[in-house]
Nucleic acid binder design. Structure first.
Lengths: 198, 198
DNA sequence: ACCTGAACACCGTTCAAGT
DNA sequence: ACCTGAACACCGTTCAAGT
C-alpha cells in the first residue's frame, strides 16, 4: 500500500485534532484510541504516528488548542466595571467554558505526561497568558506590589479551578446546581475585600 | 486448580489494597494493572474479581482509605490559636499530605468513574467529614450564618485543592518551590480578612 | 467455595512491505 | 515519501475446569 496524498500533512493534522475533539465530546477520554481516531479520519493507525510522536503528544496538542479556546472565551469578556465586576465576569466565562466543554477541560488538567517528560514551553506560555488576563484586572486594586499581585492572581485562578474541578466531579457536596456561581462570587468578593487596601 | 485458602477473604482484600498502594507509590497509576497486582499478592488475576467488582471498584476502595488517612492527618493538627492559625495549620498538613502521598492524592481526585456510575454514599460521607474539620475552625468567625459558613468552607477547601492540584502538575507558573505555602497562606489570610465581620 | 489460566476483545506502537 | 496492516507486547474481564 502506499501514499495516497488525498490530504496534505497539514490537513491530516487538523482532521486528527478535530476528530479527537469530537470523540472526546461525544464519548469521553476512554474512547479516544489510535484505532478509533484513525477510523474516523479514514486512515490507518500507523498514519497517526507520522503526524504525532504518540497519543500523549496528540493530547498535548489538543490541550494547546483548548487553552486557545479558553483564552478566546476570556478575551470576549468586556473590560468594564469595577475590579469585582470584571473578575466576576471572567469567572462566569470560565465556569461557562468548563460546563460547555466539560470533557476538553477535564483532559486539559487531568492528562499527565509520562514520568520524565515536561510540559512544553509553548504550553507554559499559553498558561501565562491566561493568568495575565486575570492579573490585568487586579492592577487597579494592587497597583504597585508586583509580587502581591502575582500571588493574588494565582490564588484566584487556582481557587476558581478548584471550585470547577471539585464541583463538576461531585466532590464538593454542593447544595444547588448553580452553587458553583455563588461560591466563585463569594471567593472573589471576600478575597478582594480582604486585600490590604481594603 | 482450586481453592487454596492460604488467606481468608479479608486478608486477600487487605493484601490487594496494600499492594495497589505500593504499586501506585513506586510506579504510578499506569503500572496498576490486574496482572501486576495479582502477581504481587501471589494470586491469579481472576481472584481479584472475586474480591472487587472490577479495577474501578478497587480504586474507589483505595481512595476511601486515602480519605481516611487524610482525615487522620488533619485530625492530628492541634486545635489552638486563632482562626487564621488553625486554618493555616490545617492547610499545611493538607499540603504535606499531598506532597508525601502524591500519587495517592492524584488518584483520589483524577480517578473518574465510568459515565453512569455515581460516587458511593460512604465516599460522600468521608468528604463531608473532611469539610466539617475545616468548617469547625470557621465557627468563631462565622458563628451564626450557617449558609455563609458552608460557602466559606467550600471556597477555602476548593482553593487549597486548586493550589495543590495546579502546583503539583506545574500548571501554576510557580516561582519558588515553597511558593505553594505562600499562596495557601495568602488565600487564608486575605479571605478571612474579607469576611463581613472584618 | 474458591482459584486458575486460557480465552476474548481490546489496547499503543512499530515497521517491513508496498506504491 | 507516505501509507498500510500485520505483528508484538500488552490491557480488563469472563468463565469453564479443576480441587
Amino acid at each position: 500500500m502506499a501514499r495516497r496524498s488525498d490530504h496534505t500533512r497539514e490537513e491530516l493534522y487538523r482532521m486528527s485534532l478535530d476528530a479527537a475533539r469530537e470523540i472526546l465530546r461525544n464519548q469521553g477520554l476512554p474512547a479516544l484510541t489510535a484505532r478509533s481516531l484513525a477510523a474516523r479520519i479514514g486512515y490507518s493507525p500507523g498514519t497517526l504516528y507520522n503526524l504525532f510522536r504518540n497519543l500523549d503528544d496528540l493530547v498535548v496538542q489538543l490541550n494547546g488548542e483548548t487553552l486557545d479556546a479558553l483564552q478566546a472565551a476570556l478575551d470576549a469578556v468586556p473590560d468594564d466595571g469595577d475590579t469585582e465586576t470584571r473578575l466576576w465576569h471572567l469567572a462566569r466565562a470560565y465556569i461557562a467554558f468548563t460546563v460547555e466543554n466539560r470533557e476538553l477541560w477535564n483532559v486539559l488538567f487531568e492528562h499527565r505526561l509520562p514520568e520524565g517528560e515536561d510540559v512544553p514551553d509553548w504550553y507554559r506560555g499559553k498558561l501565562a497568558r491566561l493568568l495575565a488576563r486575570v492579573e490585568a484586572a487586579l492592577v487597579p486594586v494592587i497597583p504597585d506590589d508586583v509580587a502581591a499581585r502575582g500571588r493574588a492572581t494565582r490564588v484566584l485562578w487556582a481557587g476558581l479551578h478548584g471550585l470547577c474541578s471539585l464541583g463538576q466531579s461531585g466532590k464538593l457536596a454542593l447544595v444547588a446546581e448553580d452553587g458553583l456561581d455563588d461560591l466563585a462570587r463569594d471567593l472573589i468578593r471576600t478575597y478582594l475585600a480582604g486585600l490590604p487596601g481594603h
